[in-house]
């Protein structure tokens, strides 16, 4: 088991799920891939299919409309999988917490392993959060 858990720590493939974010958090996620921040240094990459995911990166406050999809996506991911709540919205609901269609935040819906607050969080903060997550795994 030692080898596979070492591999898990060193190679986190991230599936990004937008659960009603205003899109600003999502832009910051893409920033992490640019030459300036280059998250591939830690072996991370964005994958297109949730079947390849090790980390579910959920941004946004989880609206009522996407609630079933968030749960289904979490169930489709092959376990073990870590969940990261991104942005003030993902952590607490942020500016949308009084909204009529607020069904979140993320940790009310699926178990969350790490929180990255900020509106939007800076790329440095995202990298910091992910590295802390790596230490925790």
């Amino acid at each position: 088991m030692g080898a596979t858990s070492w591999g898990f720590k060193k190679s986190l493939w991230v599936f990004h799920l937008n659960a009603g974010a205003c899109n600003n958090c999502d832009i910051e996620v893409l920033d992490c891939l640019t030459p300036r921040f280059d998250i591939e240094r830690f072996g991370m990459k964005l994958v297109g299919s949730v079947k390849h995911a090790d980390v579910l990166l959920v941004s946004g406050f989880v609206s009522r409309k996407v609630l079933p999809d968030v749960i289904e996506t979490y169930e489709q991911a092959p376990k073990p999988v870590a969940v990261v709540a991104l942005g003030a919205c993902g952590c607490t609901g942020g500016i949308f917490r009084d909204g009529y269609n607020f069904a979140g935040p993320v940790d009310k819906v699926i178990p969350v392993d790490a929180y990255i607050p900020g509106c939007p969080p800076r790329p440095e903060a995202i990298i910091d959060g992910i590295v802390k997550l790596m230490g925790k795994l």
């Binding site: 088991m1 080898a3 596979t4 858990s5 070492w6 591999g7 898990f8 060193k10 190679s11 030459p35 280059d38 591939e40 240094r41 072996g43 079947k51 090790d54 489709q76 092959p78 376990k79 073990p80």
Partner: peptide
Amino acid sequence: RVGPPWYQPFADILKLLGKEIL
């Protein structure tokens, strides 16, 4: 960019071996 460390592909394969097959 800087790019991944040399053991990266090995870590990927090892990790995949430990995951669930759906």
